[in-house]
Design a protein around this nucleic acid. Structure first.
Length: 286
DNA sequence: AAGAATGTTACATG
DNA sequence: ACATGTAACATTCT
């Protein structure tokens, strides 16, 4: 499940491989993957564009592309943006051109160095945009967790008056961008906070703790290369195929019944906002 | 082996 | 504005 740390890892892996590469052509095998423009227009317009910049916003990957033309100069300002959201099971693979694409590969970008950049997504929830302005794809997204605009104060303001469980609020991308189910649970454990606590019930101290915990957990996960869970074909892997390592550091996520790393109380599971939620009943009291 | 669970976001309905 | 629920899907788990 690619959340912010997984997406960040993928973008970092991709940047040195793709910088300066030109897209020669594209194949769209499942048209609905292309959110904008129309799939045939996407194929026509993406050819001849060169990768210039590499970014991430929340769980969106943002590639700045420039027209290749006859210019030999690199580093020109991007004129088009290729934006990819992996949703649940999307992933990016790099492989030699013309390789046998598996049945869940929905879009293939052919690069000028003989490689194919493929978008593979068994559940087909992932989306790709080619737009003139990133806002067209990203819409209204909350602050980046490491940006100064995400502070204990701004978080407190967004939690103010909300009766919704704090876990559900962490998953709300308009409050803070990039937190998904894994890191919401891990951050709440780090903050020693019960996931069902109403947003409005947090004291200023607790909001501060939560703010720090979100940043800490995400930063650690990025350092670990993200989390790979399970072994199925839907699992997250890096573009080179290797797994992340942060799943080894999970303290509560998918550890129901196992001892809490702090107090050895068995981890419990409950359902909040239709998502399974893991916590230590002793370290994270109601 | 049928049925439920999985998790992200946009959209719809109170 | 807020709260809740559902669709979009196919694989994996029970």
């Amino acid at each position: 499940m690619p959340e912010l740390p997984e997406v960040e890892t993928i973008v970092r892996d991709l940047a040195p491989r793709l910088r300066g590469r030109t897209i020669r052509g594209a194949q769209v095998r499942w048209p609905r993957t292309i959110a904008a423009p129309a799939p045939d227009e996407f194929v026509a317009k993406v050819a001849g564009l060169r990768f210039e910049t590499f970014d991430r916003r929340g769980k969106y990957m943002i590639f700045g592309l420039a027209r290749d033309d006859q210019s030999h100069f690199r580093g020109v300002a991007p004129t088009r943006w290729l934006i990819i959201h992996l949703r649940m099971t999307g992933r990016i693979d790099l492989s030699p051109h013309g390789h046998q694409a598996d049945p869940h590969t929905h879009v293939i970008l052919e690069l000028d160095d003989g490689a194919d950049m493929s978008f593979r997504d068994p559940r087909k929830f992932g989306r790709i945009w080619l737009v003139a302005d990133p806002q067209q794809a990203i819409g209204r997204l909350g602050p980046e967790p490491f940006d100064p605009t995400f502070s204990a104060q701004t978080l407190a303001k967004r939690l103010n008056g909300r009766r919704t469980a704090v876990k559900a609020l962490l998953l709300d991308q308009s409050i803070v961008a990039g937190v998904g189910n894994i890191y919401a649970d891990e951050a709440l454990f780090e903050a020693r906070m019960h996931p069902a606590r109403p947003g409005a019930s947090l004291s200023p101290d607790e909001v501060e703790r939560l703010h720090v915990a979100v940043q800490l957990v995400l930063a650690r996960a990025i350092n670990g290369g993200g989390s790979s869970l399970g072994s199925g074909s839907t699992n997250y892997v890096r573009p080179g195929g290797e797994a992340g390592g942060y799943q080894e550091e999970h303290r509560v996520f998918r550890r129901t019944g196992q001892p809490c790393p702090i107090c050895a109380t068995p981890i419990q599971r409950l359902r909040i906002a239709q998502r399974s939620t893991h916590f230590c009943p002793s370290c994270q009291p109601e």
